[in-house]
Amino acid sequence: MPWRVRTTLDDRPGILAEVAQACGHAGLNIVSMQVFGVADRVTDEFVVDGPLDEVAVAEVFAKAGGTDVAVTRIETGTIVDAPTRYLEAVHQVLEEGRDVEEVLRELLATEPPDVADYAGHDVLDLVRRGGTTLRISRAVPFTPAERSRAQALLSLVSDAGADLPLIAPSAFHPIPLVREAALADIDAVAALHSRCSVETLYARYQTPLRMPMTTRFARRLVVPEHGVALVAQAGLDVVGHAVVEPGEPRWTAQVLVEDAWSARGIGTMLVRQAAATARAGHADALTFLSAGSNDALLRSVGSAGFVARVERRDDVVHITVPLRG
Rank of each mutant, 00 (worst) to 15 (best):
V228Q: 07
R309C: 00
T214Q: 03
L16D: 08
F61T: 06
T215Q: 09
D163N: 10
N294F: 01
W3M: 08
A184L: 05
F36I: 00
L201C: 11
S155I: 05
V69M: 00
V115Q: 03
T252P: 04
A139L: 05
E45F: 01
V69G: 01
A203V: 06
S300L: 13
S262G: 11
V115F: 03
I167D: 11
E18T: 14
W251N: 07
E248G: 08
R98L: 11
E225I: 08
A150W: 00
L286R: 06
E88M: 01
I186P: 00
L298Y: 02
T7L: 05
A253Y: 09
L286K: 07
P246L: 06
L124F: 11
D99A: 10
H121Y: 06
T67L: 04
P322F: 02
A89V: 15
G24L: 13
D185W: 00
V38T: 13
L323I: 03
I167C: 12
R279P: 00
R313Y: 02
A229L: 11
S197R: 12
A162C: 04
G305M: 03
P208T: 10
L166S: 12
A181E: 05
V5H: 09
R219Q: 13
H121W: 15
L94G: 08
A263W: 15
G240F: 09
T132N: 13
Q34D: 02
A182G: 02
V80A: 08
D284Q: 12
T214E: 02
A274M: 14
R41F: 02
A152E: 13
V57G: 01
V231I: 13
M211F: 09
Y205V: 13
M1E: 14
H318C: 05
H173A: 12
A116M: 15
R12W: 06
M1V: 11
H193R: 15
T110D: 03
S137C: 09
V60F: 06
R264K: 13
V31F: 00
P13G: 15
T76W: 00
I136M: 04
A22F: 14
T78F: 01
A203F: 03
A260P: 00
E54D: 11
A171K: 06
E258M: 10
P165G: 01
V307K: 00
G302F: 04
C196P: 14
A62T: 11
V307F: 01
F46V: 01
D237E: 12
L297K: 04
T252H: 03
F288K: 06
D11Q: 14
F36P: 12
G66R: 09
G292I: 03
G65D: 02
R147C: 04
C23R: 12
I167W: 12
F217T: 15
G50H: 04
T143S: 09
A89D: 14
T268E: 13
R250G: 13
Q34P: 01
A64H: 05
V301M: 05
A296K: 11
T200G: 11
G267I: 04
P208M: 14
V244Q: 09
R272D: 09
G14A: 14
L323V: 08
Y205D: 11
R138N: 05
G27S: 14
A276F: 03
R6W: 07
L108I: 04
Q34I: 00
D163Y: 14
V223L: 14
L286Y: 04
E102M: 06
S148Y: 12
